[in-house]
Amino acid sequence: MPGMGLLLLKGMAVLGFISTSAMFLIWWERKVSALIQNRMGPMATGWHGSLQSVADSIKLLLKENIVPAGADKLIWWLAPFFVVFPSVSAFVTIPFSEKLVPRDLNVGILFVTSITSVCVLGIFMAGWGSNNKYSLLGGMRSAAQIISYEVPLLLSIVLVVMQTGTLSMVEIVRAQAHGWFLLRPHLALAFVIYLISATAEVNRVPFDIPEAESELGAGYHTEYSGMKFAMFFVAEYTNLFIISAVAATLFLGGWQGPLLPPVVWFLLKAYGIIFLLMWVRWTLPRVRMDQMMAFAWKVLTPVSLANLLLSGWLMLR
């Protein structure tokens, strides 16, 4: 079939980007945390420890295989697949620039949000399959958290869809040619809601109770080691990139910007949001389970519903 070679090339490019980005983000996160806590962070491997992630991935590649006794083997082995494949698939429609997008689906943003929420299946499979009490608790908490924050997340995306009248990511960026959506007050509120719910969706501090190392000892991936653990980490940091890329696309005008090439603008915006989330992670303490659920249902959901009606009214005026 013609075009198959191009498709394969795009796939390889995405995989290359995912691996490099995950390794870079892990190193960067350690450096940012070190900066905030007044430490040096990794220094020994390469310039300022820049090869630390490469060394770590080689180490993880060479680790022996440990399957916990009594694990549900099929579910246990399938879990890393179900955690990683949604984050790889989401890249099919993320626009790095007007031309540099694997495929501009006409249901773009809906596809990204729906496929990335499949990740919760993988997390729960990991929790259930491990035969470990901590993992099961982590998996349960993660499922509850992800589904609760899904509602405000989608409602804040719907606001952007109302403005543009399209679900295609490329069209949404084009609609922001005369000003970012962030600059409109009701959409700025949607941006804040999106960022908070997205932080919860990817299980990051202050919403990291599924992993909570001090109470669950890593939660759903307690029992995973070696390459399987690496896959959970790749998925975590790829999801972090995806939520930031979607935020940049929906609210910050995607690839648009003066002077620099579009791709550079897009990456600057996406990694800028990632830096913000890292800053939040190393500044705020973890919330409690009841606080987190109450915040999703009693604050974010009513506020985003009200915001939906408000922006509808603003658009009709």
Binding site: L7, G11, L61, P80, F85, S89, R103, L105, F111, M231
Partner: peptide, 22 residues
């Protein structure tokens, strides 16, 4: 076709990492 290809690609990515590790 793009969507299905990327869905499969995710599985291939994890699978190949596991095979290399094995």
């Amino acid at each position: 076709i793009y969507v299905i290809f990327f869905l499969i690609l995710g599985f291939v990515f994890v699978g190949s990492a596991f095979v290399v590790s094995w």
